[in-house]
Design a protein around this nucleic acid. Structure first.
Lengths: 150, 150
DNA sequence: TTCCTTTATCTCGAATTCGAGATAATTATA
DNA sequence: TATAATTATCTCGAATTCGAGATAAAGGAA
């Protein structure tokens, strides 16, 4: 068959892993200067762009387990970037809400962050990026579907 | 300019992160059944294909810090997959060496692992994979180069 | 209403990785 | 050769994430 190069798949996996490690490292370097990490930033970004969120929703959006979210939210509360707001309708739910400080920070820093990523990823032009996005999405969806095959 | 879509870069980063997370999760699931994790497997694979390695070399190959390598090697020694062998020429150096058990395991399991990855990544055909590999490499090299720009 | 199931959040302990610094051995320099 | 710099490995403590299980609140069924 034409599609049977097993070694090529392994290579793709290795290349992806290494590239993303380099990319993440650069992005994290940039963000760490602000005293927060990538996960915390992802949570702030979600709240900044989508408004207040139940804690459990945050977890599913940024792909973290419930226990990890509790921890991340704690840290952001300590840093006074967000606060916990009980839901009046359902007492099981707690919303995470940006504080004034958190909002100000994001309004100032998000554009810089986006620009930094843009600079780090400038190895490809827009057309190539769009292409890679499609291909990687395909790969991701397929991998997601490839669950425990009995 | 044509290449100025900042949001596209952010999207590429998010897509890459999520896809790789899915892919890694699947691969790890497969390996965990063997009682080892991805990092440990990477070390075993290096020794299996490249022969005995000084511990510090392993770190640079699998992209782990020196302290992490010590830990991973410890675990593999505990599992009797490898052993530490002092270098006679340079007493600072310790080689990691596959044990009989480790070698047998890899001879049996590596092809299965490779096949599993192949299956997980079968969302793209060979030609597309080769293309993605090149583009991701470009991205990675560029990101690597984009160090602390003063 | 009472009981069972589901949902949301949190606590706890384990796993994994890192960075800083310690130790020991080697190499280069004065 | 004595001293300084480099290299290899390890120890320690911190950071981050997870899974299992606890708790509390809602919702649904009998």
């Amino acid at each position: 068959m034409a599609t049977d190069n097993v070694g090529l798949s392994l290579k793709l996996f290795v290349v992806l892993t290494r590239a993303l490690q380099s990319i993440k490292k650069r992005i994290e370097e940039d963000i760490k200067k602000q005293g927060i990490n990538l996960t915390e930033f992802a949570v702030l970004e979600l709240l900044f762009h989508k408004g207040d969120q139940p804690i459990q929703k945050i977890g599913s959006k940024v792909l973290l387990s419930s226990s990890s979210i509790s921890y991340v939210v704690d840290r952001l509360v300590q840093k006074e970037m967000i606060r916990r707001r009980p839901c009046p309708d359902d007492r099981r739910i707690t919303f995470a809400t940006l504080t004034e400080k958190g909002h100000t920070f994001m309004a100032d820093y998000f554009p810089k962050h986006e620009q930094a990523i843009h600079s780090i990823l400038s190895g490809l032009d827009d057309k190539e990026k769009a292409q890679v996005i499609e291909q990687i999405k395909t790969l991701g969806f397929h991998a997601e579907g490839t669950s425990a095959d009995k």
